[in-house]
Simulated assay, not measured.
Amino acid sequence: MSTISDEEAARRWRLVLGRYAADQLSVGQQDEGLERSLRYLYDREYTARGHRVGTGRGEGGAAAGRGAGLGASQPHGVDVTALGWLNEAGSLFPRETFERMQVDAVSRYGLTELLQDEAAIEALEPSRELAVAMLQVRGALNDQAAAGLRRVIQRVVEDIVKRLRTRFTTAVNGRIDRSRRSMHRVARNFDWKRTLRANLGRVDAEGRMTVQDVRFSSRAKRTLTWDVILLVDQSGSMAPSLLYSAVCAGILSGLPGINVQLYLFDTSVVDMSHLADDPVAVLMTAQLGGGTDIARAVRHAEQQVRNPSRTVVALVSDFYEGGSVSSLLTTVRRMASSGVTMLGLAALDEAAEPVYDQGTARHLAECGMEVAALTPERFAEWLGEVLS
């Protein structure tokens, strides 16, 4: 177990406590920049509680009472704009720490000026956490800040799409057909089992195989269209899943043989199908927060079903039902009996660590809905298995 010296421990506590520990702990010259950046952001914690934030000392250098001070909360000797803070903090802290500070700046301390300065927007480090924090405060933004938010969301979405598109295309675009040899000799079509069988006669006495006949499999093309209906809970706790649901809908909309219907719901249902191919527009339109009526959303989905045996309904929710649970279960049971394939997603993001109503989830599973917490990659694989 590693230990730290008393000096290093005191240094860390000084950074945690800030100027209010100035009488007992001094800040080293090498840490002055760190303290300025931390003070600029986290002194807002004190002002939010009604404290006056200043130097922490009164007249003549005497220690002041709690919250006393003479100056404003700002980095001394540096640009006090949001851009100045971003530039300094970005150069001083590790990337993960800086990303967390950005999230706090937007979600906890309302530094919306970050979104009103073009240079500040470019200086932001786009991340899923930052996008989620911004989506949760979107309703409080003015037009200029909302435009800045759109640019940040666009960058985050582009990054996620870049990472997920290939996985969805490979998993959903067609099942592997091992009955035919493929003329497309690419890695994703490599058939290692048939290759081994074809080269079993080329194994030497030491067990080494000389591979001369490399086999590839074809991917069968779907000739019939599938309807994929995404029902996405837009309550406040679902922001990360909403982000990835919008991206998944956008990717699926670009694949052949799939008709995507996208609905966001709280106590009402909003048809976003016309925007399904534009994740940014979906996210900028969503209204996070409010109640939850899952039964209403599922009934709406049932009304859209044209061909039950070729319809997939994916419900993305935490399953905390504010409406009628009995009505929800009745509708799910009826849809499952008709042949609709149903999936309940308790989480759809990179972490796949859900907090959800396990009782309702269990009842849904008993009625014919497969319930799971999946990453977007695993969701793509699941769809590929269903649509094959």
Rank of each mutant, 00 (worst) to 15 (best):
V325I: 15
G54Y: 00
R138F: 04
V269L: 07
Q304D: 02
D204Y: 06
Q261S: 14
Y40S: 13
F379H: 04
V156Q: 03
A21H: 09
T267G: 12
F319V: 02
H51Q: 12
Q30P: 04
A147Q: 15
F379T: 02
V53A: 06
Y356Q: 05
Q136M: 15
E366P: 00
G344I: 02
Y42E: 08
R175E: 11
L364N: 02
D233Y: 05
P240V: 06
D293K: 07
G148F: 03
T267D: 14
R180Y: 09
S337G: 11
E381D: 13
S388G: 15
G207I: 11
A89S: 14
W13V: 12
M1T: 14
D43N: 15
V282D: 00
C367Q: 15
T331L: 03
V247K: 01
M1K: 13
G139T: 10
E206S: 12
N199H: 06
L328M: 10
G71H: 14
L200N: 00
L288G: 01
L130R: 00
A64E: 09
M284S: 08
T195S: 00
E206V: 10
K221D: 12
G236V: 10
L25D: 07
L243M: 02
E158Y: 02
V132H: 01
R39S: 13
L262M: 09
V156F: 03
D43P: 01
G359T: 15
S26R: 15
R12H: 10
M209I: 13
Y263Q: 09
K221E: 14
A89C: 06
L34P: 01
A198Y: 07
E8A: 10
A119Y: 08
L345P: 05
D293H: 09
T223M: 06
D318N: 10
E118S: 10
L242P: 01
V386Q: 13
F319M: 12
R299E: 14
L15P: 00
V282F: 01
M272W: 00
S253Q: 08
S73W: 06
E366D: 11
F319T: 00
F379S: 07
E113F: 07
V132D: 00
R39P: 01
L275D: 05
T267R: 15
G359K: 14
E385I: 10
Y42F: 15
S388E: 13
M1R: 12
R194G: 00
R333M: 11
E350N: 14
L196Q: 07
R49Q: 12
K193E: 12
R219S: 03
S91Y: 06
A48G: 11
G77H: 03
T341R: 10
L83S: 05
V106P: 06
D318A: 06
A68D: 11
G322Q: 00
L255P: 04
V203W: 06
A295F: 02
A297Y: 04
